[in-house]
Write a protein that binds this DNA or RNA. Structure first.
Lengths: 128, 128
DNA sequence: CTACGGGCTGGAGTGCGGTTCAGGTCAAGC
DNA sequence: GCTTGACCTGAACCGCACTCCAGCCCGTAG
């Protein structure tokens, strides 16, 4: 498929796809008269990249992973370790977000209290 | 307290504190012969800013919040809505991260399988 | 044959969130 | 009174992850 289609399927812009190729995240695909023609498997790889990115991994680290992947089975253990590290980071981040959510809850409850008190005050004023 | 102490207490660099003041996140404090002297309450406000930031809120949005806060009680309801919006975003983000964690788990399990199979192959080779 | 849509390149530009720097001022301790 | 260390300002600079652009090529449809 051509780059436009890949862009549609993955949700990454054409520019981003070319950029990812340039920095080594995507293997340079076969070309026909200059134009990139991608294997359908590219979609799955890019979806995985998107997932890694969603975990907060930097493009730099993703590139390291991609490089190891290209080198084949000998790097499997190292890749696993990378994923495990990232997994731990994700769990940590989730914890952090849970804490933030709790704080927001607390603050929001406070605002509700404040608003309720103001309403009471208004009611008293209107009753006079 | 002086800016150095505030920096220690909040974990933000002196530069960042001055930057936050410049963009309107922190009220310009009282000064004595040019030097900023902060009220201890500043720590609590900055900790709150850090929490908002940890939720992924942009400095721009935090500034909007700070501006409303400075305007007093009349803005309480709007501020509450902002926090509620942010709360919803945090929950969504947590969901996303959970999904990513699950994918990583799956991939890691795959790698374990692959490594186990390689080990078996090695064992067979050594047995010959 | 020509117009058009899509793709190509290299390189410059963008937005965010700071960080660093040059060139000072000020206050406290020795 | 001099040194030291913390602090001041405005402006330039940084890394990341894109994003856009000019000017080109190519294949297909009308």
């Amino acid at each position: 498929m051509k780059i436009g289609q890949l862009s549609e399927l993955t949700g990454l812009s054409i520019d981003t796809l070319r950029y990812y190729e340039k920095i080594g995240l995507i293997e340079p695909p076969y070309r026909k008269s200059g134009q990139r023609l991608y294997d359908p498997d590219a979609v799955r790889w890019i979806d995985f990249l998107k997932a890694l990115k969603a975990t907060g991994m930097s493009l730099e680290d993703m590139k390291r992973y991609a490089l190891m992947r290209a080198k084949g089975n000998a790097t499997a253990a190292n890749r696993r370790v990378m994923l495990e590290t990232q997994h731990a980071l994700v769990l940590k981040r989730i914890e952090e977000l849970n804490a933030c959510a709790a704080l927001l809850d607390y603050k929001i409850a406070n605002y509700h209290d404040i608003e309720a008190r103001h309403e009471q005050a208004d009611n008293r004023r209107n009753a006079r």
